[in-house]
Simulated scan of single mutants.
Amino acid sequence: MSSSLPACSIPLFDTVASYRQWRRNAYDEKKSVGFVPTMGALHEGHLSLVRRSLAENDLTVLSIFVNPAQFAPHEDLATYPRTLPRDLALLEQLSVSVSGGTRTPSAVFVPTVHEMYPSGISQNTEEQKGTFVEVKGYGHQMEGRTRPTFFRGVATVVTKLFNAIEPTRAYFGQKDIQQALLLRRMTRDLLLSHPEPQDLIIVPTTRDPVTSLALSSRNAYLTAHERESVAPALYSALQAARVAWEGNASKAECIRRAEAIIEDKKREVNGSVDLRLDYIEMNDPDSFEVVSDAMSRQQWEGHVAGRPVILSGAMWVGKTRLIDNIILGAAHTLGIVE
């Protein structure tokens, strides 16, 4: 462990070489390894992924790495919350009871930027040198419309992390549904063995028990008023669209009802909070293509029996961009299981 890292009862590794020695021992002992990749600033959503991994694997590894490649030059790389000592303290308190004993986190991978990008890294894609991963045709819709270089950065860093960690299973949250489904496709397309596509597990979104706001590290940017009274409007809007969809309204009508919720909230705050809707949309979970405006639930189910729809949205509350989604239909067909 590097002397620059905080003291921690969990083994910490800041180089691939040191981690790989630990991983070889796990191989020799024929132990399964669950993996939870994070950018730190841990919250209950992250911890739910860790608990799931602890319950399903002999060993559980987390990574904490703020990835420069997924931030555009104008985005919040410099100000993204970095709370490593607090993160490690939370992990030290975490345990899950299983048959035969108790499991706790086994290791934390905390690499430097140079370790992850030995050729160097710039937030400007035009200046980047080295090897990058792109899942073509699936990264320009939904979140990719607003953040066109985001998924290239995510696919690159997760490929690196999978190569370093060699997990039996990896765990991602439904809040970032496009990311999780895109990464599962990537594991299939690149013929990865650690993890295999079916072992990329998507865990339902963890929400605030009072407001139902999807938990996110960026929620730390919100004021108490924004977090409790304004930000929950996004989920309320998605719920309004879901009710309309279940009532067999057209997709266009579903979106209209959702947008009306945001407009009502904007009138309510009356300029005291800068509230801006980025998008609310419905997409095919396989292609990410937009569902046609005229499509209704009955028509969709007749068109692609058994396939759900992703209803997602993003909005700005002050300087904070929030995302959320609801699966319309059988979420388990996407591998999302409580």
Score class of each variant (00 low, 15 high):
V158G: 08
G40P: 00
A331F: 00
M315N: 03
R242E: 15
V291K: 01
A26E: 09
H114S: 11
L192W: 01
A258G: 11
T131A: 13
F162I: 05
T156N: 06
V273N: 08
S212E: 12
A72T: 02
W245K: 04
P209A: 11
A305C: 14
L62F: 02
E268V: 06
R82S: 10
T15C: 09
T333F: 13
S95K: 14
V98Y: 08
R297E: 13
T60L: 03
A7G: 13
W245T: 06
E29Q: 15
F35S: 02
R188H: 15
L54N: 03
A164P: 01
D87T: 05
T125L: 02
D274Q: 10
C254N: 00
K30Y: 13
A89L: 14
G306A: 06
G120N: 04
V36H: 13
V98H: 05
P6W: 04
G302A: 14
F172K: 02
L62W: 04
S119I: 03
S250E: 11
F35W: 05
K266Y: 06
C254G: 01
V133G: 04
T156V: 08
L12Q: 05
Q70T: 00
R276D: 12
E263W: 05
F13N: 05
G306D: 09
Q198S: 10
E228L: 12
I280G: 02
D324I: 08
R185K: 15
F71A: 03
A55F: 09
S4R: 15
G144V: 09
P11T: 10
I261L: 09
K265H: 06
V50E: 06
V291M: 12
V113I: 14
E134M: 14
L192P: 01
H46Q: 06
F109N: 01
S97V: 15
L161H: 03
A180T: 04
A26C: 12
D208C: 08
Q174F: 06
V154F: 07
T112S: 15
W245H: 05
Q239D: 12
A224W: 11
E143L: 03
F151L: 10
P6Y: 03
T104R: 14
G100D: 09
D14C: 12
P308C: 10
F13E: 00
P232A: 06
K129H: 13
L77Y: 00
V96W: 07
R321Q: 07
T79H: 07
P11R: 02
P81H: 06
G100S: 12
M39T: 07
L334Q: 02
L182R: 00
L12I: 06
G329C: 07
R82C: 08
S250W: 04
S312I: 09
A17Q: 12
L277M: 08
V113Q: 12
G247R: 11
